[in-house]
Nucleic acid binder design. Sequence first.
RNA 1: GCCGGGGUAGCUCAGCCAGGUGGAGCGCCCGGCUGUUAACCGGGUGGUCGUGGGUUCGAAUCCCACCCCCGGCGCCA
Length: 435
Amino acid sequence: MIPIEFRAISDALSSEEGERIAIRGWVYRKREFKDKIFLVIRDSSGIIQCLARKDNQKAFEEARKATIESSVEVEGCIKKDPRAPGGCELKVDELKIVGLAAPFPITKSAVDASSDFLLDVRHLWIRSRRMTAILKVRDTVFRSIHDFFRSRGFYEVQAPMFVTAAVEGGASLFKVDYFGRRDVYLTQSSQFYLEVLIYSLERVYTIAPSFRAEKSRTRRHLTEFWHAEAEAAWMDLNELMRLEEDLICHIVSTVLSERAEELGLLGRNVKALELVEPPFPRLAYDEAIEILQEKGFDIQWGDDLGSDEERALTMDFEKPVFIYGYPEKCKAFYHKPDPSRPEITLSADLLAPEGYGEIIGGGERIENLDVLLDKIKKFGLDPKDYEWYLDLRRYGTVPHSGFGLGTDRLVMWICGLQHIREAVPFPRDIRKVYP
RNA sequence: GCCGGGGUAGCUCAGCCAGGUGGAGCGCCCGGCUGUUAACCGGGUGGUCGUGGGUUCGAAUCCCACCCCCGGCGCCA
């Protein structure tokens, strides 16, 4: 129908007055009058108002038929007009409906209520400007993670999703039917496989799903989440924390420079993000307990930090904050004891500010076979389940460290979202597996 | 696993305490409107009141059982 080349709407908006252009996209808003119809058309790049006048009867008639979310091709001339959103509109010469949309089920009331209904129609809600903005930020976050690790000499690797042993312990594993074989599960973490791979590549990372069958009902838990994990030979806890803060700063600054428009659309307070620069505050677990006791929390040394406690600690800082040196019993068995204080581990969590909480957990791993065996037994686990993991300590073991970043939580914090489900295109939690 | 809240029109909700012919806004359809910005104005359309049972002359409303959903905690990323 239309002889000239289609252009992105963002491109059309910056065209010269009077320029003849063609666009294609979906009807985002429609306002109908006696002698004119305004169609706001969206594509992946933006929105533009199109004006169909009655004197062009054919185009007017097509515009009249076009429903919200119908896909259309439009050709016309660019006109600067202060009355148009963005100060620029397209005067329609030709309009073709490609796919006429049935009445769109998502209404303003559902959007305003951020209702559960939007999750049931996520396959349609995904095209909203809000979800589009979040997905663009998410894209930038994932890409900047890859860029960062490559710039630091890390190799990207892939670990299996079907596994036979737990990383953290058995309670939160999804069991799968693997040709009738017993004890096959979906992975909770790629960490152990990354620990294998450092013996050939030394510095490795992966971005992959992790699965946790925890019956968590909170705004920061999913049963399937995207886990960015890294492991490095010879690295100690201080080097690890520097690496983590550099990673977070790189991601945040990339999003700030490339996704300012999307953050604005999401209503994110970017000033809070602009403060995210190294170094991050480092708080020893011991200090954290003292601070919490001063704040009136009923907490003793040795207790794990709950979400109220974490929130109270991050309140005092504008940047993400490290909590390091957790007691042995608060952390998984593979965390290395501090040689000078065996009751604590060389571990560190990174807590995001503004109440978002834990986004990274990591630390030094036990490299000594006997220490690891003792720890496994102490935690009530069976060394038989960890044979190949133990082998790594038998054949040229090295000190090493690693961490896991919850990318969905990171996107949630960077975008300022109320719920982690908003940060994922198709979230899976304890109930939702559709669409 | 523990604690709390809810299920009424396509969507968001009121009605329930105190039983008496099921409502509003949005959507959709029709009409109006000289440029709208989540348009606006008038009219119309639209319901096994989560499911099953009980009490009652009469149940969305009271009672019992069950199903489903939401939030918080714990666990973690």
